[in-house]
Write a protein that binds this DNA or RNA. Structure first.
Length: 256
DNA sequence: AAAAACGACAACCGCACACCA
DNA sequence: ATGGTGTGCGGTTGTCGTTTT
C-alpha cells in the first residue's frame, strides 16, 4: 500500500504531500535544480536542498535521486556478464549486503544491483535442490577436504609469496589507477598453486600485505587482515558453476 | 486483438547508526 | 546521558513497457 498516495493528492503520478513535499517521478526541471545544487554545494546536507535549490523534495528523496540516477560517474547500460559474475559471487559471500557489493562494481548502485538480483536470480536462489545448490555442496565438501590438508602443510611452512612479482603487479595497478576496480586481480604462481592477489586499500603497499585466495578455495589470511570481514575472504565460489569446476574468482578487496 | 503475466527500473519507507549540541 | 538531525541501507511497492496466452 502506498501511503504517500493515500495521504497526498495526485498530479498524475506526482504527488504533493500534506507537508508540501513532492513525491513520485522526478521531472527534468527538478533534476536540473538538483544537479545545480550539487555543483554549488557538493554532496551532502540533503535537507538543505529544498531551501537552497527551491526543490519541493525532502532530503532523502534528493539524496536517492542523486546517488541512484544523477551522479555523473554512474555507468549506464546493461549489467555485463563479468559484472553479473561478480554480483553472484559477492552475493554468495555477503548475502543481501547490496551496498557492499556495489562498492566492487564502480558506476553501479546498490539499488541497481538489488533490482538486478531480484529480477534475475531470486527465484532460482530459492530452489534448494537445483544444480547450483548441488554445486555448492560439492564445493563445501571439497573445501573441507583441502582445508584439512592445508592446515597440516601450513603449520610446517609459512606461505612465501613471490614478493617481486607482487610488487610488479601492484605497480602496474597503480599506474592504471585501477586498484579499486576488480577487473582483474592478478595471480601469482606459488609452488604448485596459483594465488590471486587482492590489494589492501591503503596507500602503503609495503606495509599492508595482501589477501591470498587459493585457486582451490583454500585460503591463507595474512597478518594485515585482522577484522571479521577480511577473514571472510576465504575464497569465493561461483553460483554459475554447476559442473563443480571451481575457479579462482575475480573478487575485490574492500572499498574504503 | 485484448487481457494477463512478467521484467526492469525508479522511488518510497522504516530502521539503524553516527554525530553533535 | 540524551534528544535531534543527517545519512545510509535493505526491503518493498508502483509504474510502465514487453511478452505471452
Amino acid at each position: 500500500m502506498y501511503l504517500g498516495m493515500m495521504a497526498g493528492h495526485h498530479m498524475g503520478w506526482g504527488i504533493i504531500e500534506e507537508e508540501g513535499w513532492r513525491k513520485g517521478p522526478w521531472t527534468a526541471e527538478e533534476d536540473g535544480l538538483l544537479i545545480e545544487y550539487v555543483k554549488l554545494h557538493g554532496e551532502g546536507r540533503w535537507n538543505s536542498v529544498a531551501r537552497l535549490a527551491g526543490l519541493k523534495r525532502n532530503g532523502k528523496s534528493c539524496r536517492l535521486r542523486w546517488v541512484n540516477y544523477l551522479r555523473p560517474e554512474l555507468k549506464r547500460g546493461q549489467i555485463t556478464p563479468h559484472e553479473e559474475s561478480i554480483i553472484l559471487e559477492l552475493h554468495a559471500r555477503w548475502g543481501n549486503r547490496w551496498s557492499t557489493i556495489a562498492r566492487s562494481l564502480p558506476g553501479r548502485t546498490d539499488n541497481e544491483i538489488k533490482n538486478y538480483w531480484r529480477t534475475h536470480f531470486k527465484k532460482k536462489a530459492k530452489v534448494p535442490s537445483d544444480a547450483s545448490e548441488k554445486a555448492k555442496n560439492r564445493f563445501l565438501r571439497r573445501k573441507q577436504f583441502h582445508n584439512q590438508q592445508h592446515q597440516q602443510q601450513q603449520q610446517q611452512q609459512h606461505l612465501q609469496v613471490n614478493q617481486e612479482e607482487v610488487k610488479r603487479i601492484m605497480a602496474l595497478l597503480d599506474e592504471n589507477n585501477d586498484t579499486k576496480i576488480p577487473c582483474f586481480w592478478p595471480q601469482v604462481k606459488q609452488g604448485m598453486e596459483t594465488i590471486s592477489i587482492y590489494p589492501h586499500h591503503t596507500t602503503d603497499h609495503q606495509e599492508q600485505g595482501f589477501y591470498y585466495s587459493m585457486l582451490n578455495g583454500n585460503v591463507s589470511v595474512p597478518e594485515a587482515s585482522n577484522n571479521e570481514e577480511n577473514f571472510l575472504w576465504d575464497g569465493l565460489w561461483n553460483l554459475n558453476d554447476v559442473h563443480g569446476n571451481f575457479s579462482s574468482t575475480c573478487a575485490t578487496g574492500k572499498a574504503s
